[in-house]
Amino acid sequence: MLLRDGVFAPRGGTGWPGGQQSWLTSATTPVDGLTRAPWVVAAGVALVLLGLALLVVALRRRTRRVLALAGCSGAHLLPADVARRARAAAEDVDGVLDASASATRRTVVVEVTTTGGASGGGGGDVRARVASAVAGSLAALTAPPRVRVHAATGGPQRSGRTS
């Protein structure tokens, strides 16, 4: 329609096929002759400022809340997913009775309860094995977080759980 109006507008109202009038003329006739009101200027300035503020918010650098996977374009993990993965890796280590984990983008803290027996090695050996297992499970991240392991000695291994 705009193309048609652009072609026929230079000829004036008589140049329209069938004597039709342009829809642009119909749309602009009611506002022709209006004068500028002070509230319109104020509203226009307010809208321009709002638009600039929204533009700044849209273009500013945002905080990163996820951890990117290496080699996968657009694949990310939330810190809660990283904590679940770390907990699962820690629970698979021999000598670990129970494990819990919390994660941020930079650090994973794993708390394990060990058997404290021969396979537990007094906690130090289990702590190193847990740290190694968790670090291995998070190696697929582009920037793996630092792993901290806290170990506590528990009672004998619960029945129903196999190592």
Rank of each mutant, 00 (worst) to 15 (best):
V7E: 12
A9L: 13
P10C: 02
R11T: 13
G12N: 12
G15H: 13
W16Y: 12
G18L: 14
T25Q: 11
T25F: 15
S26F: 06
T28L: 15
V31A: 09
L34R: 14
T35P: 07
T35W: 14
T35Q: 15
R36D: 15
R36A: 14
A37F: 08
P38G: 03
P38M: 02
W39G: 11
W39F: 15
V40S: 15
A43W: 04
A43M: 04
G44Y: 06
V45C: 11
A46P: 03
L47W: 06
V48G: 05
V48R: 05
L49E: 05
L49V: 07
G51T: 06
G51I: 04
L54S: 10
V56G: 05
V56N: 01
V56I: 04
R60C: 02
R60G: 02
T63M: 03
V66E: 07
V66L: 08
A68G: 01
L69C: 01
L69Y: 00
C72A: 11
L77N: 00
L77S: 03
L77F: 03
L78C: 03
D81Q: 13
R84S: 13
R87P: 00
A88E: 03
A89V: 01
D92S: 11
D92M: 05
V93C: 01
V93T: 00
D94M: 03
G95P: 03
L97F: 09
L97Q: 14
D98S: 14
D98K: 14
A101P: 00
A101M: 02
T104Y: 09
T104W: 08
R106A: 13
V108R: 02
V108S: 08
V108P: 05
V109L: 11
V109S: 06
E111W: 13
V112Q: 00
V112E: 01
T113N: 00
T113L: 10
T114L: 08
T114N: 08
T114K: 07
G116D: 02
G117W: 15
G121T: 04
G122H: 09
G124L: 15
G124P: 08
G124A: 15
D125T: 13
A128W: 09
R129E: 10
V130F: 05
A131C: 05
S132L: 14
A133M: 06
G136S: 10
S137A: 15
S137P: 00
L138P: 06
A139G: 05
A139V: 05
A140S: 07
A140V: 07
A143S: 11
P144K: 07
P144R: 04
P145F: 10
